[in-house]
């Protein structure tokens, strides 16, 4: 009898808690997206696309990827749209993190990466975001080659004390590379009209 009561109480509590939070999540989601765009992604995008002749945050469009929509930001240089920024998420050491990956569509190279939202340990995995020199390693890598850390036979130096985070960033970048291969024609087509 007591056993049943315990199970029932815990179940009811969890259901109410889960349901309430789901509702709140739906409610706050659009606001959180706006805040993220302004305070986290915006500066990161502008940093990757330094010297762009347009406003890359405003020049965005969405593409349909299966069931989800992906937002693509466009950077134009001297008026010519040439860099597409894709957003992917990876599984880091602590939790999911967001990663922006910029592609130079003219030369088929990585134009840069930047970690946005994350919960990695400050000073170790957090360096993936806080240390621009580390992220700069990805710049200029060809799109047809997978990124790997040196321990796995690649050429990306892992952050010291944060091999898991470094691998996760490489994996997320590779995921973006695959998306780029898949959607390149669509990206190039949409980029012209998106520039503002």
């Amino acid at each position: 009898m007591e056993m049943i009561k315990m199970v029932v109480v815990l179940t009811i509590l969890s259901v109410i808690s889960g349901g309430g939070l789901k509702w709140l999540e739906e409610f706050t989601k659009p606001m959180i997206e706006v805040q993220e765009l302004e305070l986290v992604k915006g500066p990161a995008i502008r940093e990757i696309l330094k010297g762009a002749s347009n406003d890359p945050v405003e020049s965005r469009f969405k593409i349909q990827d299966g069931d989800e929509e992906r937002t693509v930001f466009v950077g134009a240089f001297d008026g010519e749209p040439r860099v597409a920024v894709l957003e992917v998420s990876g599984k880091g050491f602590a939790d999911k993190f967001g990663l922006l990956v910029a592609f130079d569509v003219v030369e088929d190279k990585l134009a840069g990466i930047s970690v946005t939202t994350h919960k990695e340990t400050p000073g170790l995995g957090g360096e993936a975001k806080d240390n621009p020199a580390w992220a700069a390693q990805f710049k200029g890598k060809p799109v047809n080659k997978q990124c790997k850390v040196t321990n796995d036979g690649g050429d990306i130096n892992a952050l010291s004390g944060a091999t898991i985070t470094s691998r996760a960033v490489c994996d997320a970048t590779n995921q973006a590379l695959a998306k780029y291969e898949e959607f390149k024609p669509q990206l190039v087509e949409n980029m012209k009209s998106a520039v503002k």
Partner: peptide, 18 residues
């Protein structure tokens, strides 16, 4: 109970004081 309220705080903070 505590975890639920913590997530409420976390989401509200993200929405209003990022």
């Amino acid at each position: 109970i505590i975890a639920t309220f913590v997530i409420v705080v976390e989401m509200m903070m993200q929405a209003f004081v990022y």
